[in-house]
Amino acid sequence: MSIVVQAQGVSKRYGGFAALEDINFTIQKGSIVGLIGPNGAGKTTTLKALLGLTDFEGQLNVLGHDPRTGRHHVMEHVCFVADVGILPRWLSVGEALDYVEGVHPRFNRQKAEALLAETNIRNYRQKVKQLSKGMVTQLHLALVMAIDVELLVLDEPTLGLDILYRKAFYDRLLNDYFDHETSIIISTHQVEEIESLLSHLLFIDQGRIVLDSAMDELANAFTEVWVEPDQVAAAEALQPIHVRDLLGRKCMIFEGANPASLADLGELHVPSVADLFVAKLQKNQGQQRGQS
């Protein structure tokens, strides 16, 4: 598999505040990567850095280009949808189509119009400022999905949209758009929503990557144990990364442990991504506090 994005030691500071600290990761062709972190963790900054939309330190290679100097080359093969509307308010639907058609060599206008026909947007003379928030996102997505790209970057694409639309959006993304030639990176702080479509996970917290794993490796790396009451002390001795109460039982998550050695402690499960997220975040924040 070829590498689409490679980040090495990427850092970004705003004054004294470190938005990103020594970020390393790679994105393989054909993968769907979830960049997951709480608000303010550095998700948007990471995505903007790899799109060449913000300056940074370190090495970043996106499809063979450094996004800082080759942004317009990168953008021929990468599309971006941001968390809130970034389409200019004065632009009309028809003008948006004309513009993207005019500047993007890989834009398919018929496809964009077909996608728009499935939305509530009927009047091409309507301006962005007259559209609802959901419609602006639909317009932006229709534009982007009609571009044949190698990497699609989605920054909290469904933020502020209602649940019906969110579900339909991810279904369409997976069924109509994703073809294993394209790679997708989606940032979100709502893990459950995209868990099922991801092939790879990146957890980010306080500007650091705290987990970088393929989805199918999670079961090997992490084990959740519903610990029997009499085994709690023995289980805690094995240093779980997370403990929570579940229906009167202790529920612990272990990292890198041999499942066979845990079997005596209680029922074994594969942790959900959401629980894993909480576990890794609490661990990271505990470490951060310990350091400072």
């Binding site: 903007k48 799109l51 060449g52 939309l53 942004r71 317009h72 080359h73 953008m75 021929e76 990468v78 599309c79 971006f80 941001a82 809130v84 970034i86 389409l87 200019p88 308010r89 513009y99 993207v100 500047v103 993007h104 060599p105 932006h140």
Partner: peptide, 20 residues
Amino acid sequence: DERKDRSILFWKSMPVSDAM
């Protein structure tokens, strides 16, 4: 204005160079 209303993120997400 494009920086103020955030639309720069849209304009810069298109393959148009800064010089152009």
